[in-house]
Design a protein around this nucleic acid. Sequence first.
DNA 1: TAGACATTAACGATGCGTTATGGTTT
DNA 2: TAAACCATAACGCATCGTTAATGTCT
Lengths: 243, 243
Amino acid sequence: VWKISRLAEQSGLTVRTLRHYDSIGLLRPSHRSEAGYRLYDDRDVERLARILALRSLGMSLSDIQRSLNQGCLSLIECLEAHAATLDDAIARQRQSLTRTADLLNRLRADPSPSMESIQEAMEVIRMFEKYYSPEQLEQLRKRADQVGPERIQQVQQEWTELFAAYRQAQAEGLAVDSPQVQALASKSRSLIAEFTGGDAGIEQSLGNLYQGEGPQQVLEPHGYEMDEELWTYMSRAQQAAEQ
Amino acid sequence: VWKISRLAEQSGLTVRTLRHYDSIGLLRPSHRSEAGYRLYDDRDVERLARILALRSLGMSLSDIQRSLNQGCLSLIECLEAHAATLDDAIARQRQSLTRTADLLNRLRADPSPSMESIQEAMEVIRMFEKYYSPEQLEQLRKRADQVGPERIQQVQQEWTELFAAYRQAQAEGLAVDSPQVQALASKSRSLIAEFTGGDAGIEQSLGNLYQGEGPQQVLEPHGYEMDEELWTYMSRAQQAAEQ
DNA sequence: TAGACATTAACGATGCGTTATGGTTT
DNA sequence: TAAACCATAACGCATCGTTAATGTCT
């Protein structure tokens, strides 16, 4: 027969924990001394061992209680349910983790990060999650890691300059099949190709994204300015190139 | 300016949640009507959007509060810490999940599962985790899935019979290099090879396991009976085979 | 005046840590 | 008698759901 502090140091639990297990009925000592001291016998110690085994799997105390009080069959059922719960929790936390990492990447890539950036970045992330499959996202992330943040910043800069050049060309009334404009179209095709990495699926999803949300909704959170007329002009330049 | 239920349905939160955020100081409405009604203005709505963005990443409300009240830099730090926390939590839960799955496998493989089985199974699992690397464990699990539970049961049965045969041979005083005993040695080598899958690292770890814990400690929780003399006899039979 | 909407206040659930207060054993 | 050990009781943490009791707008 063991007093509470002996059992505590033997099991590695605290006295408080054992008292807690008593109070919730998970492990009631089989005996009490005259003064009311808790006295644990061998069966209690065995039960504690089982409790700790299940606790080490992350089961809740109430589930452990249910498992132990009923038979071995219900134990298996409880474990199956527990495994399913864990699976679910892991999936959700991985979601959170990738989103957090994505957000961090975007915030770090932001030259002048502000509180507003959070929302823009999250908007972008949500749009991406909507149009790209998890595998595609994984692929994009891997390639983003490979090229490194410098190149990404640089590409952003190049897009900004490209839009400005297009806008200039449009203002000057240059024809979409003029050599100058076709040079811009070629440049934008190469930037897009760098993004898609030649993957047809990603190119398709990118198209769906612009189709579904509209160019302005897509580009604004990235910090680019875009309007209907410019977009039309750029589209016509692309079409001219493809013929 | 928005009243609380408007903001609730707009944001998808409950009224209770908004009141909670007020009471903990996370989102206090900038105004109150004469009657004490909460009135949220545009800045409040913006703040709520940021709160929801971070909450969707699984950040705690207190962390969100710290992040938003301080600058953008601390936000990045908070996100980094959050990512680390998530990483950690995921690792632990995956531990729990694999252990739970292992326990389930052992319990299901047990022909007469009892409450005592839990501890034996957990002991085995702990020993395995102690002597095999995570990669080796992964490998073992994969192969266990491949061969299926029937074959595993069958192998257990074969080991039981093999031990019985050895014991019989020992009782009859058969020499360890006699053909009959060598046939047993050969059988046990093939069973071991089936377990290791020919992987030298796993064979090494298996040796360490028996070396470190002793054959009886290893075999008893598996339901086999073993004693010093029988083990010595079997070892000598193996040595004879290797020469 | 009815009905929808607002308020504050307080318990509940999880798994104990952490006092506070006081009796028991050696 | 002091030191070590035991007991019960209660708050605290995180995030709201859920009554309860009551006041306000239309």
